[in-house]
Design a protein around this nucleic acid. Structure first.
Lengths: 315, 315
DNA sequence: CCATCTTATGCTCACGGAGAGTATAAATGG
DNA sequence: CCATTTATACTCTCCGTGAGCATAAGATGG
C-alpha cells in the first residue's frame, strides 16, 4: 500500500461506484424520505463523472426530480464491503451515500419515485407520543430472548446491557441519536428481514425493510440528521419560506422523534436571532393567531460554521 | 439514476479506488501522523478487496507497518472530484480516507514511512502557548489583503468576516475544531502551495504542503479528532497502558492545540470513572509524584455509545 | 535544615444555561 | 359567556463549567 502503482483496470478488480441518496423533507409534521421501487429502496444509481464533484451531480439529479433546489447536502458513508451483492463475480461496488434536505412538492415525483414516512421503516424511533408500544411489547422481549441465547453469562449480560443502552430499557433514557446502533443491534439479533436473509431466523420486529443495505443507510442518515439539527441551523432547509414557530417546532420534533418544551424552544430560537418576523400572521389557525417568521439568511454565513443550539428534552 | 443497470466497465468510466489513512499517535505531548515520501504524503494505496471490509483492510495494513494494533478507526470522507489528478485521461480515482489512532513504536517504521508532527503542516493550529505569532504577523494581514481584493464592498466584508470567524481574529474566539475551514479558506485565498499549483499566486503562509489533497485530508482528520475527543473516550487509544493524569491532559492538549484547566480536567475524568488507579506511582518525576492510572476497559461498551465529556477551555 | 520549585490534589464560588412550571393574552366555536 | 386552543411572557431551581485559592508531597540547592 506504500507505493501507488497506476494500475490498469482488469476484469479482476473492476469497480463500479454508486450513489445512494437519503433525501429528507418534512410535511405536516411527518419526516419523509424519497423512495423508489414501491418504497422499497432509496434513490440510487451509477456514479456520473460528468459533474465537477459528487455533490454537484447529486444536486443536479435531485433538482430535476423534485423541481426544488436541494438545500443542505452532506456525505454520509462509503460502503465497500465484500459480499454486499450476492454474486461473488459481480464487479466490486462502492456505494457512496449522501444526506440531502429538500421540501416535498406535489406532482414532481418521478414515475418510480414517491415520498414515504421514515417511521414506516423505523416505527420504534417515534417517541413523540411516548415510547411506542412495540418497544415494550415486541422488541424488548425479543432482545431479552436473544441476550439469553448467548453462551456465557458474561456475554448474556453484555448483550442485554447493549440492548438496554441503545433502546432505553430498564429505566434508561431514550437517546434519539442511536438510530443506527439500534438498527445494527436488531440486525445482529436477526430480528429483521435483512439479517434473516443472511443469517436465518425469524423476522419479527415490525418496520418495513428495504433492498440491500438501504435501510442501514437510511438509519445512518436519520442518526446524522438528528445529531445535526441540535447544533447547525439545518432545519430551515426543510421549512417553507414563511412559517410559525410552532410549525418549526413540529418539524424539529418530527425529525428528533420526541417532543420539546415549547417555551424553551422559542426562547432559544429567538435569542439566537435565527428568524425574523415577516409582519404577517398565519392564516387559518385555531386559537390565538401566530406570527409568521422567516429564516434570517444573514446568519447562515456565521452559524453554518460556528453553530447553533436547539433544545431536545422531554415533553 | 433511477434504474440501476449493471454497467460493464469500459475504458471510458474506469474507476480505481484508493485508501488514504490519517494515522495519529501522541508522543511526548506532540501529535504525530504517519507519513511517507519524505513526510510529503499520507500513507495510501490501491484498495484491496481481499478483506471483508474497508476497515479490516486498513487494520491489517497498519498493524503490519507499525507492529501495533490499530485502536479506533473511523471513515473520514470520500473524494471523487473530477480533475483531482492532473491527467484528464487517467482513470477516475475515488479516494476513501480514514482516521486511525495508534501508538508510536520505535523501529517499526517502514522504509518510506515516518512519524511527523501535525503542526509541521498546520503551524497556525497550535495555540498551546497562546495564539502563534504567524497568525497576527502573516496570516491575518494576508487574509486582509485577500478580502480587500474582492470586487464589491459586500464581498470584501463577507471575506473578512469569514476569515475572522475561522481564525479567531478581531477579538473573536479561537475555535480549534475549524481546522478544515481554515485550510480551505487559505486554499481559496491562494496562500498555500496547493492552491498556487492550480490558481497561481504566491504561497506565503508557513506550513509544509503535501502531495495532492493530502493536507486537506489531514485537516479533515484533525478536525474530526478534535471534535471527537470531547464526547467519546478516544484519547485513551493514544495512551500507554499506564499513565498519569497530567500525561493524559497533555495528550488532550496536544490534540486540541490548546490548554486545559488542570483541576477541572481531573474533576471530569474522575467523576466519570473513566480511569482507575493502578496503585503504583509514576517513576522519574519532578515534584510531587503522581499516581498511575489505567483506562477502565469496562466503560468502553457503554461510553463508546453514550458519550463522555472533556473540558476544553483556555489555560 | 530551610527556602524554593514543581507537580498533585482538594475545595469553593459565581455565573449562565437548561429544564420545567405558572400566568396571561388573543383568537375561535358553541 | 364559556370552553378550547394557541401564543407569549416570566420565574425559579438545579447543575455543569470556568476559574481561583489553598494545601500536600516530593526534589534540589544553599
Amino acid at each position: 500500500m506504500n507505493k501507488r502503482p497506476q494500475k490498469t483496470v482488469t476484469a479482476l478488480d473492476a469497480i463500479t461506484a454508486d450513489l445512494v441518496a437519503v433525501l429528507v423533507a418534512v410535511t405536516d409534521g411527518d419526516p419523509r424520505i424519497m423512495t423508489i421501487e414501491h418504497a422499497a429502496a432509496l434513490p440510487s444509481g451509477p456514479f456520473q463523472f460528468a459533474h465537477r464533484s459528487l455533490q454537484m451531480g447529486l444536486r443536479a439529479w435531485v433538482e430535476a426530480q423534485t423541481g426544488h433546489p436541494l438545500g443542505y447536502v452532506e456525505q454520509l458513508y462509503t460502503f465497500a464491503d465484500r459480499g454486499r451483492s450476492g454474486d461473488p463475480d459481480a464487479p466490486h461496488r462502492i456505494s457512496i451515500s449522501y444526506l440531502g434536505l429538500t421540501r416535498e412538492e406535489e406532482g414532481h415525483e418521478g414515475a418510480d419515485a414517491q415520498w414515504s414516512s421514515w417511521y414506516d421503516y423505523f416505527p420504534w424511533e417515534d417517541h413523540r407520543d411516548g415510547p411506542p408500544a412495540i418497544l415494550a411489547k415486541i422488541i424488548a422481549p425479543k432482545l431479552k430472548t436473544w441476550a439469553r441465547a448467548a453462551d456465557e453469562p458474561a456475554l448474556q449480560k453484555g448483550r442485554w446491557r447493549r440492548a438496554a443502552i441503545t433502546f432505553g430499557l430498564d429505566g434508561r433514557e431514550w437517546n434519539e441519536e442511536l438510530t443506527l446502533q439500534r438498527y445494527e443491534l436488531l440486525y445482529e439479533a436477526a430480528l429483521i428481514p435483512e439479517s434473516v436473509r443472511e443469517k436465518g431466523g425469524e423476522a419479527t420486529v415490525p418496520g418495513r425493510a428495504m433492498t440491500g443495505d438501504h435501510r442501514r443507510i437510511l438509519a445512518t442518515g436519520i442518526a446524522r440528521l438528528r445529531a445535526k439539527i441540535k447544533y447547525r441551523p439545518v432545519v430551515f432547509e426543510l421549512m417553507p419560506d414563511e412559517f410559525t414557530l410552532l410549525q418549526l417546532q413540529r418539524s424539529v420534533e418530527a425529525l428528533a422523534g420526541r417532543l420539546v418544551h415549547k417555551q424553551n424552544f422559542r426562547r432559544l430560537i429567538e435569542q439566537q436571532e435565527l428568524v425574523e418576523e415577516t409582519g404577517a400572521m398565519a392564516p387559518d389557525t385555531i386559537g390565538r393567531p401566530a406570527k409568521l417568521f422567516r429564516f434570517r439568511q444573514g446568519v447562515l454565513a456565521e452559524r453554518a460554521v460556528v453553530g447553533t443550539k436547539l433544545p431536545l428534552s422531554r415533553s
